[in-house]
């Protein structure tokens, strides 16, 4: 390796480029997302198996909250998604958004409204709790975090997601209503060494 450290000038330029290009990239991604959400068949995947079972058996969804070590695990990162940009997304709280088995005509506008707000002023990092898998490829394309919970009540998943992602709130996508809020939100660590 010819150089151990990157030149400070290069770092400054890349940081500047990142601050410039980050919002622009998010804008372009949001435009794509908006266009996708205009398509009525966006979530309709034509799956055609000759013998479709009447009902898929549910399996046990493993739950870290059932294990004593859960209290000792650090929470995992939750992505901001590619349609929004900010310098320090880690500072944003993690909010769960429950997506029930909604009709496409309800689902698409609701998602668009939420993600438009998210694009303009990101105020949270979202974990989408999904009752069905229809929306997963779409959410994945834009780097959102999700959790498939099936027909279980979203409230049953709260404790697990509190441990896994430090989730502080759960809201219903369709109504916007708060389904759950953490009683004592985590307190930010005091910043040391700065004024």
């Amino acid at each position: 390796m010819s150089q151990t450290f990157a030149p400070p000038a290069l770092l400054r330029r890349l940081t500047h480029d990142n601050k410039t290009m980050g919002p622009r990239l998010a804008q372009l991604e949001f435009q794509n997302l908006s266009q996708e959400l205009e398509q009525p068949d966006l979530f309709d995947l034509a799956l055609d198996f000759p013998t479709i079972p009447p009902e898929v058996p549910q399996t046990f969804m493993p739950n870290i909250a059932l294990t004593p070590v859960a209290a000792h695990l650090p929470a995992l990162n939750v992505t901001l998604g590619r349609t929004a940009w900010m310098e320090d997304p880690d500072d944003l709280p993690v909010v769960g958004i429950w997506i029930g088995d909604l009709d496409s005509t309800t689902l698409r506008p609701a998602l668009k409204a939420l993600l438009r707000k998210h694009y303009i002023t990101p105020f949270a990092r979202y974990v989408f709790l999904c009752e069905t898998m229809r929306v997963i490829p779409f959410l994945g394309r834009y780097d959102f975090s999700y959790d498939y919970i099936g027909p279980a009540s979203p409230l049953e998943a709260v404790k697990r997601l509190q441990i896994r992602y430090a989730m502080v709130q759960l809201r219903d996508l369709a109504s916007g209503a708060a389904l759950w809020k953490a009683q004592t939100p985590p307190v930010a660590e005091p910043v040391t060494g700065q004024d």
Binding site: V56, L76, N77, V78, D147, Y148
Partner: peptide, 24 residues
Amino acid sequence: RAAEILQAAGYPIVLRQTAAHLRA
């Protein structure tokens, strides 16, 4: 992210995200 295909074929799924997905 295409797990819906497996579900449509009748299989129970535990859907996960990778560390790369979550940037964890």
